[in-house]
Computed example of a mutant assay.
Amino acid sequence: MSRNNKISISLRKKEDPISQEIVQAKKEQAASTNAKDSYDYWGESTQMHVHEMPHKGKKPSSPSFMKNIGLSIATALVISLALGFLLLRMFVSVTDEASPTSGAANADMKAVQSTPSATVPVDFPGLDKLIVQAGVFSSEAKANEWKADLTEQSLPSVIWERESQYYLLAGSGANQAEVELIAAELSAGDIPTYIKTWSVSAGNVEVSEAQSSVVNTIIQHLEGKSLADVPVKERKQLLKTWQETEHADGNFTNAIKKWANEGENGIVWLMFAKALEQMKK
């Protein structure tokens, strides 16, 4: 055997597997400690990344969006208050400017309301005429019931209240012959009649200046019993003049309308006379 062909026999024992595991564990522990100290340690894929922030002894500040919201609210409040103040100043200014005018207008209105319409007295003499009475009743309802019956028979009538009695007057005439003709017509319909003189005492009425000419004209025709002689055209003109005046009496208006429409003259006389008595002062 030559020298070059030496046989080496190692006396080192094969390392124990347990010792190798211990050494490996120490190495991993050391590596882990170094990694944590660098604040960039990542564990297994199932572990969370832990990033520790240094504490300087101060509380963390509010998020920036909360600051923005607070600033927006404060700005809106300031703007609202400013606008409200400006609007208040404008309203007070306008009110102050309008007050004198409004005051003057109110004063003028009160002056107009407190000043009564100018009226003039119109005197009329005592009036009387023969009439046909179809009944006298203690209640207006009963008188209206009888009046309705006459109307159904095309017989006009007037209810005239005096001393709590309701007289149903069915016509009037210039003389005895006229009223007897009316009475006969009513009797033919089984309506009881009574002929008598109906009187209206003298007096005066207060009317406007525009109305006075119409009232005076009517009074003249009542006194002269000449309502039937007035042309229809003139009657309608009197009606128009009367209606154009303010505060025209309702009963007097109804009488003129009836007259202008060629109503029965005996009934029209009663309607005018009744209106004058009710308007009398």
Rank of each mutant, 00 (worst) to 15 (best):
Pro192Asn: 15
Ile219Cys: 12
Glu223Ser: 11
Thr241Gln: 05
Val179Lys: 03
Ser226His: 03
Glu223Gly: 02
Val179Ile: 03
Ala248Asn: 13
Thr217Trp: 11
Val214Pro: 01
Gly250Phe: 13
Ile267Leu: 10
Trp269Ile: 04
Ile191Ala: 01
Thr197His: 10
Ile195Gln: 13
Val179Ser: 04
Ile195Phe: 07
Glu185Gln: 15
Ala273Asn: 05
Ser212Tyr: 00
Gly203Tyr: 10
Ser208Val: 05
Lys236Leu: 10
Leu186Thr: 06
Lys233Ile: 05
Glu209Lys: 08
Ala202Ser: 15
Gly189Tyr: 13
Glu206Cys: 04
Glu209Tyr: 07
Ile191Tyr: 12
Ser212Gln: 04
Ala210Asn: 13
Leu181Gly: 09
Glu246Gly: 04
Glu209His: 04
Ile219Lys: 14
Lys258Val: 02
Asn216Arg: 14
Glu209Val: 07
Trp259Arg: 03
Val179Leu: 08
Val207Lys: 01
Leu238His: 04
Val214Arg: 06
Ser187Gln: 14
Lys240Arg: 05
Gly250Leu: 13
Trp242Met: 00
Gln243Ala: 02
Asn216His: 12
Asp229Trp: 00
Asn251Gln: 15
Val214Glu: 03
Leu239Lys: 09
Ile182Val: 14
Ala255His: 05
Gln237His: 13
Arg235Asn: 04
Lys196Leu: 13
Ile182Leu: 13
Ala183Cys: 09
Asp190Ala: 10
Gln220Lys: 09
Glu209Ile: 03
Asn254Met: 12
Trp198Gln: 15
Asn261Pro: 00
Lys258Asp: 07
Asn254Thr: 12
Asn254Cys: 09
Val200Ser: 14
Asp249Cys: 07
Ala228Leu: 01
Val214Gly: 04
Ser212Pro: 00
Asn265Pro: 01
Lys225Val: 02
Ala260Gly: 01
Lys257Gly: 01
Thr253Met: 15
Asn261Cys: 00
His221Ala: 11
Asn261Thr: 01
Ser201His: 13
Asn265Arg: 14
Ser208Phe: 05
Phe272Asn: 03
Ala260Cys: 08
Glu206Trp: 15
Asp229His: 03
Ile182Ala: 05
Glu206Arg: 14
Trp242Phe: 07
Ser213Glu: 09
Gly224Pro: 00
Glu234Gly: 05
Lys258Glu: 01
Asn254Asp: 08
Glu206Leu: 14
Glu185Arg: 14
Gln243Asp: 05
Val200Thr: 14
Gly224Asn: 14
Trp242Asn: 00
Phe252Cys: 03
Lys233Asp: 07
Pro231Asn: 07
Val207Ala: 07
Ile267Phe: 04
Trp269Gly: 00
Val200Pro: 06
Leu227Ala: 02
Gly203Ala: 13
Leu238Tyr: 06
Ala184Trp: 08
Gln211Ile: 04
Val214Gln: 06
Trp259Met: 05
Gly266Gln: 03
Val230Tyr: 00
Thr197Ala: 11
Glu185Tyr: 10
Leu186Val: 06
Val268Ile: 06
Glu246Phe: 03
Val215Trp: 04
Ser201Leu: 09
Val232Glu: 10
Val205Phe: 06
Ile219Arg: 14
Leu181Val: 09
Gln220Trp: 07
Lys274Ile: 02
Trp242Lys: 00
Lys274Ala: 09
